[in-house]
Each structure stands twice: as C-alpha cells, then as structure tokens.
C-alpha cells in the first residue's frame, strides 16, 4: 500500500521551480532521487519536510494529508549534506534535541540518545562539542539526531558527498545496515551513481524540478526512458551479479556470462566497465586480458568523432571507437566480432 504519495507538487522558491512533481513510496522503501547538481533536489526534500510553501499539489503520508502541516508536526527526519549540527550544543544535546522538543522525560531522552548513539558507534563522543568532530562522526551524529525521533520518513540530502571516498564507502554500508534494521522509509538524494545503485530499492531520476523516470536500478540504467536519463546515466556497461572466487581468480556471474574481476569481496555486487576500456576486433584477439567474448553487433550510434557500438555476447556491451577504426574495420550491424578487456578495467562496487 502506498505510504508516501506526492502528487503534482508545484513549488517555486527564488528562481527555482518544482513542476508537477509526483512520486510514491511504500513503507520501508529506500528511494534514491538521482539528479544533476542544480536539479532542485534540496528544495524538493525541504518541501516534503514542510519548509517551503506549496503552490498546488498534495503530499500524503500514512493516509494523512500533510501538504500544509507545519514542519514540526510532520515527524520527518532531515539530514543535510553538511550535517547542520547545532554548534552550541554537545553531541548528546544535539541528538536529544528532538526528544526534548516533544517534551520527553529527561531519563527517556538520555536512554534513547545513548541507544541510538550505540547503534551508530558514537557513544564515546556524546559529551563532545560538534566543532572538533571528523566528517564521519558529524554525519553519524546528524543521522542519530534525525533517527532518534523515530521519523515517519527520513530525508537524506547528499549525506555522503562531503566525505572522502573511503569513509563514504563505510558509511554507505552503515546507512544500509541501519535501514535494514529500522526500515525507516527513506528518500535519499544524490548525484552519485554508485550510491544510487548500492543503496536504492528504487531510483527516481529528476531534472529541472520534475521526475524523468522512476524504476528499479536495472530499469533506469538499462532502459532509460528519455534522452536526458540516457545522457545522465551515460553509456556505461553496468551489470549486477554474484562474485565467486575460483582457481583462475575472482569472477562475477550475470545471466551465465562470467566477468573476471580483481577483488577479495564475495557475494552480490555490481560492476561497470568504461566503454573506452573495451577493445573490439573482427578476428580473435590473443592478449593477456582475461575477459574475451565473441558477440554480434546490434547497434552502431554515430556521435560525431566517437562511435558507440553495442555488442551482444548476449550481454550487451557498449564499446567506444573512433570514426577511423569504424571505417578501417568496416563494422556493420549484425557482424560477428570479438571484444576483450582486462580484469583490472572492471570497476566493482
């Protein structure tokens, strides 16, 4: 049953407009809102939280219309990209802020604060002030502060983009675990594909204040519904599968096609191969590259100096070649060709 329904929302804030924005989410679902910088993602989340006046349209949460409800009465948790911790309050007071606002008993506040802090591994910094914390700690505090009020909906505004890549990966995993545990219905805004693919049950691609496409990870990346989505997600060879370690090294299997990868991880994962890292040839190629396939050309797209060739092995791989190579090899749709790429060119996440 629909838990959150946003229906043809129209909002204008300064020069930015949200036009006819609609989105639904089920209870417990983790929805990624993916869009380029400047697509109005923050304003969208702020509007859902009640921080901007809505011109027309409706927001319904748990069968209650909240379109014009004051933000403090919505119980929607919000985490900003740059955390927005209250600098004059300790970590414990930051986390407990929402509980104190709703008038919880002091013992209850302490108990719940310590509880959520323990869950996020920040119980040792409860007495510190936010100023001296690392980025990862600040992010956890912001998350704890939003989660402790047991929000009906959690809004995350690029929660990982201010962190360095290593930290990002671990926090990403942590957010995922927290979500598994609490099942808080979440809208997570980002411009980062890996974040989107790793975390989202569903992805909504937005542009200029409107939805371009909503669907599963596969839908959006494999069947972009518009020129914008196709361009935005780019021509990338993206596959999900299961990693296994064998004698010849690690392999990811997807629909019977095996792709050699370099990793010590196991289990479900995604891989992407940049189209320019794949070599194409009419004859068999003998090289040290571990991934070699024979397939058929199904599509050739001419984009000026570069040509995008799709080869089905039967998994569709997109390969970029120069116009000169195209002419030299005289490639045509339907032709049998070979493609190779190195295991090290496979990006796993």
């Amino acid at each position: 049953m629909t838990y959150l329904a946003i229906d043809s929302l129209q909002v204008s804030v300064d020069s930015f407009q949200l036009r006819n924005f609609s989105l639904v989410a089920n209870k417990g679902e983790y929805t990624i809102i993916l869009g380029p910088t400047g697509a109005g993602k923050t304003i969208l989340l702020e509007t859902i939280a009640g921080l901007h006046a809505v011109r027309s349209g409706r927001i319904v949460l748990e069968n209650e219309e909240i379109t014009h409800l004051a933000p403090e009465r919505r119980r929607i948790g919000f985490v900003y990209q740059d955390y927005m911790l209250f600098p004059h309050l300790s970590v414990a007071k930051n986390i407990g802020f929402g509980l104190r606002m709703r008038g919880d008993d002091r013992n209850v506040v302490t108990e719940k604060t310590v509880g959520i802090a323990t869950m996020l591994g920040i119980e040792h910094i409860l007495s510190r002030m936010p100023t001296g914390l690392s980025g990862g700690e600040k992010q956890r505090v912001a998350l704890a502060r939003a989660l402790v009020i047991e929000p009906r909906l959690l809004l995350l505004d690029e929660p990982l983009s201010a962190l360095d890549p290593e930290l990002r990966e671990s926090l990403q995993a942590e957010i995922s675990q927290v979500h598994d545990r609490l099942s808080t219905t979440t809208l997570h805004v980002t411009h980062d594909f890996e974040e989107a693919i790793s975390l989202g049950d569903r992805i909504a691609v937005i542009n200029e204040g409107g939805i371009e496409q909503v669907g599963t990870v596969d839908d959006v990346f494999r069947h972009p519904s518009s020129e914008f989505v196709a361009r935005f997600v780019g021509a990338r060879n993206l596959f999900g599968g299961v990693v296994e370690h064998g004698e010849g090294g690690s392999v990811l299997s997807h629909d019977g096609v095996k792709i050699a990868v370099v990793t010590d991880r196991g289990g479900p994962a995604h891989v992407s191969i940049r189209p320019e890292d794949i070599l194409i040839s009419r004859g068999e190629i003998h090289s040290s590259a571990r991934n070699s396939y024979r397939g058929k050309i199904t599509k050739i797209v001419d984009r000026g100096p570069l040509i995008y060739v799709t080869v089905c092995v039967p998994l569709p791989f997109v390969v970029i070649i120069t116009r000169r190579s195209l002419v030299e090899m005289a490639l045509e749709v339907g032709m049998e060709v070979y493609i190779v790429f190195k295991a090290s060119a496979v990006h796993l996440f």
Binding site: P71, F97, M101
Partner: peptide, 13 residues
C-alpha cells in the same frame, strides 16, 4: 538558516 530548519523538522516551533 538551515540550522533553524533542522530544528523545525525535529519538532521545534
């Protein structure tokens, strides 16, 4: 101003 906005989402008038 977003500090106030966060406070609002946490239940502050």
């Amino acid at each position: 101003p977003r500090l106030e906005k966060v406070a609002r989402t946490l239940g502050a008038s």
